[in-house]
Write a protein that binds this DNA or RNA. Structure first.
Length: 563
DNA sequence: ACGTAAATAT
DNA sequence: GATATTTACG
């Protein structure tokens, strides 16, 4: 709509050169006559060319008629016939003009509504002369988004919202001061809706890359820049890495400072018994840094605070961070899920370790598992009970397939989402795939797992079975790295949050776990169960997965990514 | 450029 | 309400 004549174009060029552009045509809409007059006067003072109207419909008519061209619209929010939002909406629909909203109400919701509707700015009355002076910048940005500041590449109008002040670095002033929403220096509240960078979701692959880099550099010498270089993933910024590193360090700190003593004991002893030397001792803290049985959520299998991993075999690995604990109890997770906190992020990812190198018991300790809290848990419990009572493997197989997997096949699994199966990560809730992942034998692991599985978890079985190489996973291209925009949906699997993991230790310790997910019928005989489970292990992933229902697979609020 | 902490988004 | 990620800032 806003076509620019040569002079006007020149005007903008001037503006870009920091010369104040004169004569921009501003349509001002406000039902309050006084306001209108004030605005008009102010705009004139700043050499704008204001046209005033008292209602939105008229404004719209004028805009649509096209007799007069406008460069910018300023509209009040509260108006009788049609409010500013509606007007904004219609303008967005019909033409290409920056719109500034005006309101007495500085309520965040109102402001956000304006922004959401695609307002270029939101000013709170009374508007001071000074800020009105700068509205030309909106016009400039609107027309030439790349000229000043960066404007996101995305489509919607919302994306174009920019702070009224030109230079981000100048106004950047404190977002930290935003807290006091009383407009200091009577300046109206600006939303200064600087565009946020698209959120990066740390997939397990990304995270593995990250770890790889850290390991190469050494934790103590790892700085964002280096890590970034090593990771060589283009959609990541140094800031992203810094953030992740910060989080990682915080995690390590937590883990190293308060591992629960019994977990520590157990781990050490098992470690000494089984470990082939792949896990690392944390010399700095004098203890094994093999994760924690405490309330921290990541587990590292081979990191020490000193930074390097002892064995190259373990470079890939992993720490697991689920937020499975908040207060050291698991009861909370046995119930229903937090619905909005299930996003699956790299740190939440279960370890993708080379299981072969990890002592069984540590695996048990370290691999918190899915808590199939509801029906699934029950089903599995039931199944396993059946097994223990002497059902044949084939029996098991079929009934398992029928009852749990169901008959239908889902073709809905987005290819790139199937990484859950390929990366070897721990399955998350409702992901049964790994349970049946491949035919790798579970060997000795099983004895220790059995009781656990009986209680609530089935996924860990698959986890350990899953033999896919982490090395492979980490070498996967980053094509599927998820940079998720706020408006975009995230993929279903990635949306699963590891909140549901239950640390094995708790169950094995006979603590709360037992009471939370009660055993149904007394004690199982261990050996037969082991045998049976080995049979389960022999099921192939394809067999099972191909039969899987998506409903079984995803959480209620999992989001299916659109093609 | 880094690390920490506040702000925001999910 | 908790976490995850981005942003501000010393």
């Amino acid at each position: 709509m806003a076509t620019m004549g040569g002079d006007r174009r020149q005007m903008m060029v001037n503006a870009a050169e920091d010369k104040f552009p004169e004569g921009l045509r501003v349509l001002v809409v406000d039902d309050d006559r006084v306001c209108l007059k004030v605005l008009e006067a102010l705009l004139r003072r700043w050499k704008y060319q204001p046209t005033t109207v008292m209602d939105a419909k008229t404004a719209l008519r004028m805009l649509m008629a096209g007799k007069q061209q406008f460069d910018l619209v300023i509209t009040d929010v509260c108006m009788p016939d049609m409010d500013g939002f509606k007007l904004l909406e219609l303008i967005r629909l019909e033409m290409d003009l920056p719109v500034i909203m005006l309101s007495l109400d500085c309520d965040k919701k109102v402001v956000m509504k304006g922004i959401d509707h695609g307002a270029s700015d939101f000013m709170v009355k009374p508007v001071c002369a000074h800020e009105l002076k700068n509205i030309w910048q909106h016009v400039q940005r609107w027309r030439n988004p790349k000229a000043i500041g960066h404007i996101s590449d995305h489509d919607s109008d919302v994306q174009r919202v920019q702070p009224a002040t030109a230079d981000k670095s100048k106004y950047s002033g404190n977002k930290r001061n935003v807290g006091d929403d009383s407009n200091e220096n009577n300046e109206s509240t600006h939303i200064s809706s600087t565009h946020r960078k698209p959120r990066v979701t740390w997939t397990i692959e990304l995270h593995n890359k990250f770890l790889e880099a850290i390991n190469q550099i050494g934790l103590d010498r790892a700085v964002p820049k280096k890590v970034l270089e090593l990771m060589n993933v283009d959609c990541l910024s140094r800031e992203n890495i810094a953030s992740h590193l910060q989080k990682y360090r915080l995690y390590l700190k937590r883990v190293n400072s308060n591992p629960s003593s019994d977990a520590y004991e157990r781990r050490n002893s098992s470690y000494n018994m089984n470990n082939k030397g792949n896990l690392m001792h944390n010399h700095e803290h004098g203890r094994w840094s093999v994760s924690s049985g405490d309330t921290s959520s990541w587990s590292t299998n081979n990191y020490g605070a000193t930074g390097h991993v002892a064995s190259p075999m373990n470079i890939q690995s992993n720490f697991y961070m689920g937020s499975y604990l908040h207060d050291g109890r698991m009861s909370r997770y046995v119930g229903k899920q937090p619905s909005d906190a299930r996003r699956f992020t790299g740190f939440g990812d279960p370890p993708v370790s080379l299981y072969n190198n990890i002592p069984n018991e540590i695996m048990l300790d370290e691999f918190p598992s899915c808590n199939y809290s509801n029906s699934y848990a029950d089903l599995m419990r039931g199944k396993l009970m059946e097994i223990s009572k002497g059902k044949t493997p084939s029996n098991l197989q079929s009934s398992f397939a029928n009852r749990i997997v169901g008959g239908g096949r889902s073709s809905l699994v987005p290819p790139q989402e199937s990484y859950a199966m390929s990366t070897g990560r721990l399955p998350l809730q409702n992901e049964m795939t790994p349970f049946i992942s491949n035919t790798t034998s579970m060997g000795g692991i099983i004895e220790q797992m059995a009781p656990f599985n009986m209680a609530s978890n089935t996924s860990s079985v698959g986890t350990m079975l899953n033999g896919s190489s982490t090395l492979d996973a980490s070498r996967t291209s980053m094509k599927d790295t998820h940079v998720v925009n706020s408006e975009r949906t995230t993929s279903m699997l990635h949306n699963l949050q590891p909140d549901d993991f239950v640390p094995l230790t708790q169950l094995l310790d006979g603590g709360d776990g037992a009471s939370i997910v009660p055993m149904q019928e007394g004690t199982l005989e261990q050996q037969p169960l082991n045998d049976q489970l080995n049979e389960i292990n022999a099921l192939s992933m394809d067999d099972m997965f191909s039969n899987m229902h998506m409903e079984d697979f995803t959480g209620d609020d999992a989001i299916v990514e659109e093609a």
